[in-house]
Design a protein around this nucleic acid. Structure first.
Lengths: 366, 366
DNA sequence: ATGAAAGCGCTAACAG
DNA sequence: CTGTTAGCGCTTTCAT
């Protein structure tokens, strides 16, 4: 791999100036056909490929959009090798939040002629992830809580950034475009369903210990639904766990079941992962779902439909969120920049499945 | 969004040279702590973010790895809005081949400190997709048949490229690293299973019309297994379809069932999509699977486990393929380049589910 | 239609 | 430890 050929090499070989070589690639029609062919031929012979970096540098634009997301450290990374039937489900199910967003962004970016640069955060030196991404793209989306607010603030002064999932974190960032889902609405509707349609009244809500606007909003929806039905609720979740993982969910179920007093008729979790964990606990303890107790999640991850009983949950349109993010970025990139910050709330939908008592035999064919 | 601050601005503001500013970012320890702080402070105030392009240009490396894949035009793109239960399965199931590879690459890239640039092909001017990606990354992977061989040949002379899925397409490309899956082995084993374990002997194989090394290899495995069992087979699939999609699969099932002569005892499809389509046809016609006829696919897409009956298929380790691709690239990027081209074949595994007659009640809990 | 020349913002020796 | 000085490869006026 000797040193790569440049415009100069191509220019020399085809007997034109570097400017012409450049034109052949940027604006073919501005060059006489014959000349163009000569240049293209030389380029081919030399194995010339324009340097994206040089281009970006000279033209101040890259044709690339970015996405930064948190390093959902992913423990199943190594389980890949196994072929046991048991982990098969988990494997596909590990189709995460971020993966869906990536898909959505990729599709939309493609439509607009952009490529997509993706990177998960990873603690580093003064040189953080965002900076790396930011330096190589025309604009990018960030999953909430992925990067320090301050850093984002600095960067967003220079290029379009759209914040995903989770309301604006601070006032410093209120000039960013921003997309969230109707967390409260979804949880409220799901709770209402449990109360009105299934007649349940002793509910327990499991939230998270760490502050998360999304989780807060979900809880708020829950509270609203309860109040609307005349059910007493405290203004804090019945339980808060640390990580919102399956193990934590499993533990949470134990805790809730072992509490003195009447056993809850329904366990509402702030996300699917926890709910699935709870399902395990319940099965182990011989508590039937939904006959003895209802269980619900939030997110609508693939796994939620694979478990038995299939999990009733609130589905978030993550893919669409990715698409909208790109639309917003493209709009900023092409329009005048003086537009007001956009803030959109994507609707969610309740997936009524078995774990709440709805009879739907989940496994629909294709 | 005025013009972005540069090293010069930061240098001036902090009273140092641009070289020092650069050092602060590239090699913080080589700068006196006090100086460093001053620079960082200035950078923060100015909203300075290093330009990835300028960096890449000056240092001839980007810290980015790439992936090019074909534009599996994706008809479900718009179906997102619907909330009908019917398409719910399809939606998740649309977790494609490429998505899995992306996941694998992203994980591995992250481990090595690289970001990932992804782009689907899209016909364009003289300026193709690969060129765009190639110009912005240190090395990249290409899904077979995504880009013209010639172009790839040219590019691969300049930077590491690994070809994914499908054997080397031509001799021009035999210097590329290359990863494929054991297509023939998988199909052979699956076929053997049908013959020996289920005692089926009248088999029909559905391949694709367009030339695809992978599909050819699968068919080869099928033929080998048949021959080994003393079953007569012609040297071409019983049917070839155009697109390997669900509709085509559905049609194929009709064709095969309507052919004069004994009805086949098993329909083997070269991919899952077609097999799923066939399942529909069979259900519509009242042909029971697997009682009346067995059906098998190939790939192991998520959908294969969601349909009823669950599809027996050959699972490809697509995620792992992505990971290995990154490992290969990183190795090329860090080592001496004189190494021989690597060619690895990833093992596959047969997923015995219901559609072949194996009793496994698919829906495993988490 | 094509050429000349001036950067784009940063890194990388090489001096101090 | 820090400053100087060249480029890196391409786009882009401005001429011709």
């Amino acid at each position: 791999m000797s040193t790569a050929p440049t415009v100069y090499d191509v220019a020399e070989r085809s007997g034109v100036s570097i400017a012409t070589v450049s034109r052949v690639y940027r604006n073919p029609d501005s060059v006489r056909a014959q000349t163009r062919e000569r240049v293209l031929a030389a380029a081919r012979e030399l194995g010339y490929v324009p340097s994206g970096n040089a281009r970006g540098l000279a033209s101040r634009s890259t044709g690339v959009l970015g996405l930064c997301f948190p390093d959902y450290s992913d423990p199943d990374a190594e389980s890949e090798a196994e072929t046991g039937a048991g982990d098969e489900a988990d494997n596909d199910a590990a189709m995460l939040y971020s993966d869906q967003i990536i898909r959505g962004m990729e599709r939309a970016a493609r439509r607009h002629g952009y490529a997509l640069l993706i990177a998960a955060s990873l603690k580093g030196g003064p040189e953080s992830l965002v900076a790396k991404v930011a330096g190589r793209v025309d604009g990018f989306a960030v999953l909430a809580r992925t990067v320090p607010t301050e850093e984002l603030e600095v960067i967003s002064r220079r290029q379009p950034v759209v914040m995903l999932a989770g309301p604006r974190e601070s006032d410093d960032l209120d000039h960013l475009d921003h997309i969230e889902v109707a967390n409260a609405d979804g949880q409220r509707e799901l709770t209402r369903h449990l109360i009105e349609d299934h007649g349940l009244r002793r509910l327990a809500y499991v939230g998270s210990a760490e502050e998360s606007p999304d989780v807060e909003a979900r809880f708020r929806g829950y509270v609203e639904a309860c109040r609307a039905a005349g059910i007493q609720v405290s203004d804090a979740p019945d339980l808060r766990v640390g990580m919102m993982t399956q193990p934590e969910g499993a533990r949470a179920a134990d805790v809730l079941l072992d509490r003195p007093g009447d056993r809850p008729e329904a366990l509402l979790f702030a996300n699917d992962q926890m709910a699935v964990g709870a399902l395990h606990t319940l099965e182990r303890r011989g508590v039937r779902v939904p006959e003895d107790i209802a269980v619900t999640g939030f997110d609508g991850i693939a796994l939620s439909r694979l478990v038995r009983p299939a999990l009733t949950t609130v589905r978030q349109p993550m893919r669409r969120m990715g698409e909208e993010a790109v639309e917003l970025l493209v709009r900023r990139l092409t329009g005048r920049q003086d537009k007001e910050p956009v803030s959109m709330v994507l609707p969610v939908s309740v997936a009524r499945r078995e774990s709440c008592g709805c009879a739907s035999r989940g496994a629909a064919p294709a």
